[in-house]
């Protein structure tokens, strides 16, 4: 067993912690950093609940070790709202009934945030394809797709 020092920037704030090499990034976020917005579902990369953004890419935090993010920049769901105000994507999830129990939501929000940064005008099929990496057992996905489509439309208006 080895213990390592990890320095990582999460949502703009620097965390310097000691971790065991086997600690999963998802557990590091929740238990060491206290960022419990990232949810842990299946712990083998299938459900998508633990998705976070590492160096501008949405990845499963249960499939990385905390020690691997040393020196990197990350964003978790806690970084989306600004000054206590939900961001436009989050507001659309509320408005379009994009969540019910909310367990899968943080992962979906992070995937979508990364995806919309890279694809400004996705069609419904693109959105569904991106969402195929996330399991939601409440909404039937309809509200989630609508919330994302609405965000895309709103962005177009703003441009």
């Amino acid at each position: 067993m080895t213990v390592h020092e990890v320095e990582v920037k999460i949502n703009g704030k620097t965390y310097k912690e000691e971790v065991e090499s086997r600690m999963l990034l998802s557990d590091f976020l929740r238990e060491t950093c206290g960022l419990t917005g990232t949810h842990v579902g299946c712990e083998h990369g299938v459900c998508g609940a633990c998705t976070v953004i590492v160096n501008d890419s949405a990845v499963r935090s249960c499939l990385m070790f905390a020690v691997q993010v040393d020196g990197q920049e990350m964003q978790t769901v806690e970084g989306l709202a600004q000054n206590g105000q939900l961001n436009p994507l989050q507001k659309n999830f509320v408005e379009c009934h994009g969540l019910q129990c909310g367990f899968c939501t943080p992962g979906i929000l992070m995937s979508t945030t990364d995806y919309l940064k890279k694809h400004s005008t996705p069609c419904k099929k693109d959105i569904q394809d991106m969402l195929s990496g996330h399991l939601c057992r409440c909404t039937g996905y309809d509200g989630i797709v609508k919330a994302i489509e609405k965000t895309v439309e709103d962005q177009k208006v703003n441009i």
Binding site: G45, G48, T51, A58, R60, L63, M130, G133
Partner: peptide, 9 residues
């Protein structure tokens, strides 16, 4: 292969 989130990594 898998999903966009796993292909990112």
């Amino acid at each position: 292969i898998g999903h966009v989130q796993t292909r990112n990594r």
